[in-house]
Simulated assay, not measured.
Amino acid sequence: MTDAVTPEDAVDRENQLRDNLRAVRERLQTACVAAGRAEDAVTLVAITKTFPISDVRALAALGVHDLGENREQELKVKAPDCQDVTWHFVGQLQSNKARSVVRCAAVVHSVDRSSLVKALSRAAVEEGKTLRCLLQVSLAAYGPAEAATGMTRGGVAPDDVPALAAEVAGADGLELGGVMAVAPLGSDPDEAFAGLESVASRLRSEHTGADWISAGMSGDLEAAIRHGATHVRLGRALLGTRPPLG
C-alpha cells in the first residue's frame, strides 16, 4: 500500500478514478430510474481492498463519503489517514479483531453469529461509540453450484435472522441497521436478491429502523437495486483490476 508514484502517475490515476466514478454514478442513476426508485436512493460504498492510500484520498476528494474494507489489517492503516468519511467493514470478522474494527469503522456489514455480537458490543462500549450492524444473510440456497464446492460466502441462515437480530438490537453499543448479502457464484442474482429482499422485509416488520439492504457489487448491482438495495459495494467498477494481496 505504498505510494511510490510520480506526480504524473498520480494525476493520471486521479483522472481515471474521476472517469470511473462518473460512469458508476450514471450506472447507479440509470438502475434506480429503471427500478422506479429515486435517482439518489442508493449509497455507493467504495471497496478499497488492496488499493493504496493515495486512492482512498483521491476518492474522498472526489466526494465519495463511504469507504469499505474487508480486512482488518488494511482498515486500521487506512482509516486513521482518512477520517472525513464513513468507514464500513464488509469482510468476515474474527471476534478477536472486533476491537480493532470498532475503533475504525462506523458500520460492520458482516455480523453472522452470537459470539461476534458479544465481541462487538464489548468493544463498542469500551470505545464509547454506537456501531451500526448489518446481519450477513446466507443466500447459499440460490447457488447450489457454489455450495457444492464447499466455498460458500458465509452468513446466517434466513430462518435464524430474527433471533440474531433481537440479540443485536438488545446489545449495548450496537444498532441494528439491516441486512447484507453476496449473491452466490452461478446464481441468478435476481432470485438471490429477491430472497434477501424478503428477509429484509420481515426484519423491518419487527425492527422498523433496520432499513438498510447492502447488496450488489460491480457485476450485479442492477439486480440488487431492483430488489431494494440501499447500499452497493463496488471495487472493480470504480478502482479497476485489484492488485494482488501483499
Rank of each mutant, 00 (worst) to 15 (best):
S100D: 13
E206D: 15
F89R: 03
A163K: 15
L239G: 03
A165G: 02
E39M: 14
T6Q: 09
E191Y: 09
L174N: 01
R242A: 11
L131P: 06
A34E: 12
A60P: 05
G155I: 03
A157F: 02
E222P: 00
A23G: 03
W212K: 12
R204S: 03
D112I: 15
T130E: 15
P244N: 10
A224D: 07
R113Q: 04
P52Q: 09
V156Q: 09
D220F: 02
A194M: 15
Y142Q: 12
A223V: 02
P52L: 09
C133V: 05
D19T: 09
D159N: 09
E127D: 08
A157P: 00
A41H: 06
E14K: 12
V111K: 11
R27H: 10
A147S: 13
Q29R: 14
R242K: 14
A145K: 12
G240W: 03
Q73F: 05
A124F: 00
T149N: 03
V24S: 05
T43K: 11
S115G: 02
V77A: 13
R18M: 01
D9S: 14
D40I: 08
W212P: 00
E206C: 15
D159T: 13
L221D: 00
S115P: 02
T241M: 11
A165T: 05
V232G: 02
T43H: 07
H109Y: 11
A147W: 07
L203K: 12
E175C: 12
A166E: 14
V125H: 03
A169C: 10
S100E: 12
L59Q: 00
D19Q: 13
A38Q: 14
A34G: 02
A210I: 15
L75N: 01
E167R: 04
L164W: 12
D81P: 03
M151I: 14
V107D: 00
G128T: 13
V85K: 01
T230I: 13
A61G: 07
V102C: 14
V179W: 08
L21Y: 04
L134I: 06
L164I: 07
L44N: 01
T208M: 10
I53M: 11
R132K: 13
Q136P: 05
D9F: 11
A165R: 09
D112K: 15
P158Q: 14
Q92V: 12
G68Q: 00
E39N: 08
